[in-house]
Amino acid sequence: MPALKVDNLAKTFPLKKPLFGAAPPGVRAVRPMSFQVETGETLGVVGESGCGKSTLARMLVGLLEPTQGTIEIEGRALDNADPAAFGKLIQYVFQDPLSSLNPRKTIRQVMEAPLKRLYHMPKPERDVRIAEIFASVNLREAFLDRYPHEFSGGQAQRIGIARALAANPRIIILDEPVSALDVSVQAQVLNLLADLKRDFGLTYLFITHDLAVVEAVSDRIIVLYFGAVVEIGRAESIFANPRHPYTKLLADSAPVVGRPLTAPEQKDTELPDPLNPPPGCAFAGRCPRATDICRREEPALTPMGDDQLAACHHPLET
């Protein structure tokens, strides 16, 4: 049974109706998408700004109501009625560690909230549990009575992870958990996440824009473009052997030591406008392989080779 199963999930943000005339069709932030995450797996989600990755994450934890589609966790369908039911199964680690902590609460108050509200745990049990969690994320218990502004970014992110762990979830959504951190600290947090996953049998959905990071931590990777899945594949092969031209463009754009500087695409390309989406494949305007069919028909996600799926009319050869 998969840990997380998403079926036809989509989100459209309605636009304000003008005083005269009909309401515009709305912005399709996430187009209908389906995927599964196996228990114990890390699924990487990559994409550039505006590709819908944060909207997807917020729907998965119940902070945002989906327009259509279903979310199943370990076989049980989730509905938005009870946020506490969500909280026990799936938790969220935020991108900006400091803004995810209330500046006027001590770390102890922050840590106690999920234990009190989700598990109704009495005080002595809570103290024991908090001590256990803090030990597992390598934080000193002396930190518990301090306020968030006293911590560095790396420490605050560890507190954010500890808070997510306190709810004892099955799945943790990591939304750019290291992009606000310095590289030397980034590795500390990534390694901690790997240890926690092994110790607690967690399942991760790891959202980031950094290809090298996502490749280093994930089993499988989903590439998003303009609100839709364009490619799914194994982490070790998807960037080395992309089938979708956008995945190749991403891989070629990442600055790599020892590779000469080249602009991998024409300099005058513009991203598609979400208020006025192009028909057919959203990437066609930037794609060197695009033909008429691409500008007319939206390509479906189809299997290509082992464990790899791509949504492209003219996939790259391997």
């Binding site: 560095s152 790396g154 310095d182 590289v183 030397s184 600290v185 980034q186 590795a187 500390q188 990534l190 390694n191 790997a194 950094d210 290809l211 090298a212 990071v213 490749e215 280093a216 931590v217 994930s218 089993d219 982490a235 070790e236 960037f239 080395a240 891989a251 990442a254 790599v256 030591v257």
Partner: peptide
């Protein structure tokens, strides 16, 4: 040397990353 080792590079595959303990 250790900062360079911390930076994951595309094409390295799934791995444990080097970290520098402590803070500046």
């Amino acid at each position: 040397k250790r900062l360079i080792a911390c930076v994951p590079e595309l094409g390295g595959g799934r791995r444990e990353l080097a970290a520098i303990p402590g803070l500046p």
